[in-house]
Simulated scan of single mutants.
Amino acid sequence: MTASEKNTFRLSATDRGIRAASSLLAQGGLVAFPTETVYGLGCDARNDRAVAGVYAAKGRPSFNPLIIHVPDTASAEAFADFTPRALDLAQAFWPGPLTLILPRKPESSISPLASGGLPTVAIRIPAHPLARKLLAAFGGPVAAPSANPSGRISPSNADHVMEGLAGRIDAVLDGGPCAVGLESTILDLTNETPILARPGGIPVEALEKALGTPLAAHGTSTGITAPGQLSSHYAPGAALHWPQSPVHPADALWLAFGPLGTRRGLTLSHSGDLAEAAANLFGHMHALDKLAAEQGQTSILLDKIPETGLGLAINDRLRRASAPRDDA
């Protein structure tokens, strides 16, 4: 360990572990913790230096905003302007994997760096019991992008966090595997028409039903307005490809959807269940990436996923993971 590296502690999901994690956050430290979606890399969202530390630890571009995690709607209303529509959505989907982009209150104590310099704030209430206990113990807003090096596969368990960020962060609060496995759906409510800024753990169909109106799609010409919008993101070391023809090498590795048959690799769901596929996505990507490295494989082949329900979010992650690398 060099002088610049941290001794990254692994904290248990106990009252003692929660107190230790809360104390580290209060001191400006960086603590990874589980949510129902993926593990987040948390810091005190009011502490400019701590927020800058999150960007540095991940190697994340500073124009890419962070999601603010709070314990309840009253806390959220202290930092963002809520319309009646936003309050209705909060009541329907919080706690849960929905992030709302709202106008930032002028008196908000959230670090401007956490918003990527934008006049908005991305905010949510996580449903994971351990995340909620940590937020309650800390008593303040926690800025937390996914706890992985920027652009790489998101972490769905504490081992994934340690593999990517050990030595760069202070601790990881180990709460076991994440149930949803996909990051939150992000909905931009700063315009008259709600905009789907990022598909995620809540299907678009459920949001449109609650709103009584279709969602608009985020336009690439508007730039980065929310996390997870970089063209290359969630990428493993091996390249991901959708096959262009039915002919492929016999020893190819597959990330499948449905039965594997005689193919080598892993399937997101033998039965074609989208919720199971979402929960398995990042864990299977991590496992296949390791297997590819061990076997000298440079690519992984992908099955198509239906573009409905959670399939929309799964395909979004796979498209970004298979895009040309921003660091190439």
Rank of each mutant, 00 (worst) to 15 (best):
G228V: 13
L134P: 09
D81C: 13
R49V: 09
R152F: 02
F33G: 11
E192L: 15
T120H: 12
M162V: 07
D170L: 08
A50H: 03
P65R: 02
P324Y: 13
L98G: 02
H160I: 01
W254H: 09
D251T: 14
L255Y: 01
P71E: 06
A292C: 12
T213V: 13
T14I: 06
G258L: 07
C43V: 03
A56F: 05
G228C: 07
A328C: 09
A45K: 02
A86H: 02
L211F: 07
N191H: 15
E208R: 10
S221D: 15
H233S: 12
F93S: 04
A239Y: 00
G59E: 03
P236N: 08
A143H: 10
R168M: 08
A13C: 05
G201Q: 09
L113R: 07
A328Q: 14
E107T: 15
P129T: 08
V31P: 07
F79C: 05
A171S: 12
L207V: 09
A279M: 06
L187R: 01
A20T: 15
L266C: 02
I224Y: 11
S62H: 10
L102F: 03
L274S: 09
L301P: 10
A179M: 14
T120A: 05
S184L: 14
A74R: 12
A76Q: 07
A143G: 08
V51S: 08
G96V: 11
D316R: 12
R85A: 13
L215M: 12
D170E: 11
D316K: 14
S154L: 05
H270A: 14
H128N: 15
G258V: 09
A86F: 03
F82A: 03
G237C: 06
L253H: 04
P199H: 12
D273T: 04
